[in-house]
Amino acid sequence: MSEWPAEAVDYVQAIADTKLLLSHRYAEWMLTGPSLEDDIGGASTAQDEAGHVRQLFRLLEQQGRDGEWLEGDRAPEEFRNAATLDATRDSWVEHLVAVATADRAAWYMLDSIASDDFRGLARKIGEDEYFHLEYHDARLATLADDRPEELQGAFEDALPKALAFVGPESYDADSDPVVRSGFADRSAADLRDALVAHYARLFDGTSVSLDGVDRDGPTQDEWDEARRRVGDGAIDQSVVDALTGVRNEEFAAE
């Protein structure tokens, strides 16, 4: 395995932590979705994401990250997940939009990695992501017909956070550090455009408008490069406890 530049390690850390939180949020809702199919889909997706995390953490350990720290022996603000996943959502619509935008953003970032260390691994993750993203889009399309106002409000909250996670608009092919280092072949600006264009296409012909979504932020100055967000928000300590199995410690296999 090659030695990655520091910005690449942070990049993969953010993808891995987002997948870790995706797994947690899918699991939270897998008994309370609107249909049995949604619950089963959420459970399967949670399992896939946990598997992706396992492999990405393995690579991060090989790059020098501490295994126990990766597994959750860290403060909430040390998790680099997309801000859309900081808190559980009040409604299933908000949940679906949060996970759909974060999952797609994380996949675009992973798919942009050009390092040989991801050969096969990224393709395998992509096989899972194909079904995740198809499922999200199918459900978002039905919600665009059934609950357009609620869906639009959820997008106005979640999509700017997903765009911030991808990176600032000013990170183009000449300035994005992961592209400049050769670790990735598409810049944050390119991925942001792809993300917005995807949802514009998805909602074309529906009453859901993305005109109210802030597509410009954040500025490079306000953006936290390590945590790929604006501000100091974080998951709750109870989420860290759940991820590390504190309450079920006695059942852990040694």
């Binding site: 492999q55 393995r58 050969r119 096969g120 691994l121 393709r123 395998k124 096989e127």
Partner: peptide
């Protein structure tokens, strides 16, 4: 050694 290339 867990590998993913080629993908199963």
């Amino acid at each position: 050694d867990i590998v993913w290339d080629p993908v199963w």
